[in-house]
């Protein structure tokens, strides 16, 4: 046990506790030493407009990416689980975004979004629609980031659904069809309940990713315009490494972790009665 504990304490427990402690101290600057300031950082946080802005952004980011990526991944898994021509190719195509680093994905999407000669505007041009600056407009910047995240995540979740689907015996489908169950009825009454453990796993991952997947924001918008596409983790990075306010960054981190813990526990309780484990 000891070697494992040493590693765990050094790299996990100690930094976590240190972060919490730091959030109650001021940031050391030049000759001014770090001093205990109690809940001051938390007070600042409550009055920080940017914090509230990124929190709300993050809320919408989660609200769109979590369900959409799950629904999309399930739909893709159901499709490529069927016996169809080129199934192997389709599976690979769907999984490719997962293999690509998010920075590379961001570059691909930069090309899609570029006003004027980007893919989307070129297609819009065919229908005589005006140019649109997706990443530059405060109304669309966040949604442009959401689309990238869904594109990146759905293929990954699809693999889990696909694996789960393959463990479900096809005779269940046959038994249901002999009883006259439609495709939808079978999905709703049999397939989806049997996929619940996977849905739980995938949704917890999706929640974590909705806080974690911010790499593309560095490449594409840098949180702009006017923090319209900034997310909590991105803001923490800026506070910590652009403004060098490490104590405040620690405070933000504590809030984020508390939020994640709360969400994860909530999910377990929410799903527990609905999940059938084999």
């Amino acid at each position: 046990m000891t070697p494992a504990m040493i590693l765990l304490i050094t790299f996990t427990h100690y930094p976590a506790i240190q972060t919490i402690i730091n959030s109650f101290f001021s940031t050391a600057r030049g000759r001014r030493k770090s001093v205990f300031i109690g809940w001051d950082n938390y007070q600042t946080l409550l009055q920080d407009d940017v914090f509230w802005k990124v929190l709300i952004n993050n809320f919408w980011y989660a609200v769109w990416t979590i369900p959409l990526s799950i629904v999309l991944s399930l739909a893709m898994a159901l499709w490529v689980n069927d016996k169809l021509k080129g199934r192997g190719f389709l599976r690979m195509a769907y999984f490719t975004p997962t293999v690509l680093p998010l920075i590379a994905v961001a570059n691909i999407w930069l090309f899609f979004y570029t006003p004027g000669f980007g893919l989307i505007d070129q297609i819009r041009g065919l229908f005589g629609l005006a140019e649109q600056n997706w990443m530059g407009s405060p109304d669309t910047a966040l949604y442009a980031m959401i689309a990238v995240a869904i594109w990146k995540e759905a293929g990954f979740f699809m693999i889990f659904y696909l694996a789960a689907l393959q463990t479900i015996s096809p005779t269940l489908r046959e038994a249901a069809s002999i009883e006259g169950a439609s495709k939808f009825y079978y999905f709703h009454r049999v397939l989806f309940p049997l996929l619940m453990p996977t849905t739980l796993f995938v949704s917890i991952n999706a929640v974590i990713n909705s806080f974690r997947l911010v790499d593309h924001i560095f490449v594409m918008t840098e949180g702009g315009p006017n923090n319209a596409s900034s997310l909590l983790l991105f803001y923490i990075y800026k506070v910590a490494f652009d403004y060098w306010d490490t104590a405040y960054a620690a405070t933000l981190t504590v809030v984020m972790i508390a939020l994640l813990i709360f969400l994860a526990i909530g999910q377990f309780f929410f799903f527990d009665r609905r999940v059938h484990y084999k």
């Binding site: 269940l172 002999i178 006259g180 049997l194």
Partner: peptide, 20 residues
Amino acid sequence: TAPAARDIAMVFQSYALFPH
């Protein structure tokens, strides 16, 4: 015709019970 319209019931080798 579809299986459901054939006036048949079937018992499978693996029983095909819905586990949940």
